[in-house]
């Protein structure tokens, strides 16, 4: 009987020794355009156009520069005026190739249509620039080790639906970085004076947690923007994916809410933005 048991045990080991099938199913990739476009109140439109990559391809400099689409026809219209954007290098962004306008400036309350034509494909999107809301107060709260935490306050308009997005950058920084939780829906503070304690976020999801505070003496630019619902939906689903996909207790819902029509994903968003400059005084 013992022999039988030993034979049985040996059989299991042999059986479990055969290991295979780690992560099958790599074939569902479908090529798509990726659009990151913005038009701010008083600013010219900007669009970054790339395409997606199969998940497991190794990425090197050649491939990263290959994802940039350089020769698309990108048109922005406010219903009356239309401008074709011009592509060019801009080291402040990644990838460092941005289509920009030079005539048509964003105006709060107006609707803007985006049309992208490339290799026979057409992508469209529409957005509006909501009316900007002013920050009523910006100040710093001292923390230990000569650090300071940024605080902001604004008054939400109780009679309208508002969505907000907050960014910061150091005076010397290249571009505005969204704060750690940067998207706000006024359903929790409709019509109230709302205070936001700001934590700085890592520049992107490839870098490890950064310092949530500023150093005493830093000159900080704060960008506070109102955004339309489609912009809020995109950025909050984007934040969920970027921040939570690797958290086993949360996981990814895998549903980034794009507003691009056609064979593309991404966001075309108007921002009622205002930029403030403050110094973290000792």
């Amino acid at each position: 009987m013992i022999q039988k048991a030993i034979i049985a045990l040996a059989f299991f080991f042999i059986m479990v020794g055969c290991e295979k099938n780690e992560f099958k199913n790599r074939k569902n990739y479908s090529p798509k355009f990726v659009v990151e476009g913005w038009i701010e109140d008083g600013q010219y439109p900007h669009v970054i156009l790339t395409h997606n990559l199969p998940f497991f391809t190794s990425v090197d400099s050649a491939q990263l520069s290959e994802i940039i689409i350089r020769y698309a026809k990108i048109t922005v219209s406010d219903g009356v005026n239309t401008e074709i954007l011009t592509g060019g290098k801009d080291a402040n962004y990644f990838p460092s190739f941005v289509y920009k306008g030079t005539e048509l400036k964003g105006e709060a309350g107006k609707t803007y249509n985006l049309t992208i034509e490339y290799a026979g494909f057409t992508l469209t999107a529409q957005t509006i620039i909501p009316k900007p809301v002013a920050l009523t107060k910006i100040w710093f709260v001292p923390k230990s080790n000569n650090k300071q935490q940024l605080q902001t306050q604004f008054l939400d308009n109780g009679s309208e639906k508002n969505y907000y997005k907050l960014y910061t950058k150091l005076d010397s920084g290249k571009r505005f970085i969204p704060t750690l939780l940067s998207n706000y829906d006024d359903k929790f503070f409709n019509g109230k004076d709302f205070t936001l304690q700001v934590n700085r976020a890592p520049e992107n999801n490839l870098t490890v947690a950064s310092d949530p505070f500023f150093n005493t003496g830093d000159t900080v630019l704060v960008k506070f923007a109102t955004i339309p619902k489609a912009g809020y939906d995109f950025w909050s689903s984007f934040q969920d994916e970027v921040l939570n996909a690797s958290n086993p207790l949360i996981g990814s819902t895998g549903k980034i809410k794009s507003n691009i029509n056609g064979m593309g994903i991404g966001i075309w968003c108007g921002y009622g933005a205002t930029v403030y400059k403050v110094v973290a005084k000792p």
């Binding site: 790599r26 569902n28 990739y29 479908s30 798509k32 990726v34 990151e36 790339t50 395409h51 997606n52 990559l53 199969p54 998940f55 994802i67 962004y93 990644f94 990838p95 969204p178 520049e203 992107n204 984007f238 994903i265 991404g266 966001i267």
Partner: peptide, 8 residues
């Protein structure tokens, strides 16, 4: 199945 880049 695929990946893309937005906002870095």
């Amino acid at each position: 199945v695929s990946r893309f880049t937005i906002g870095g």
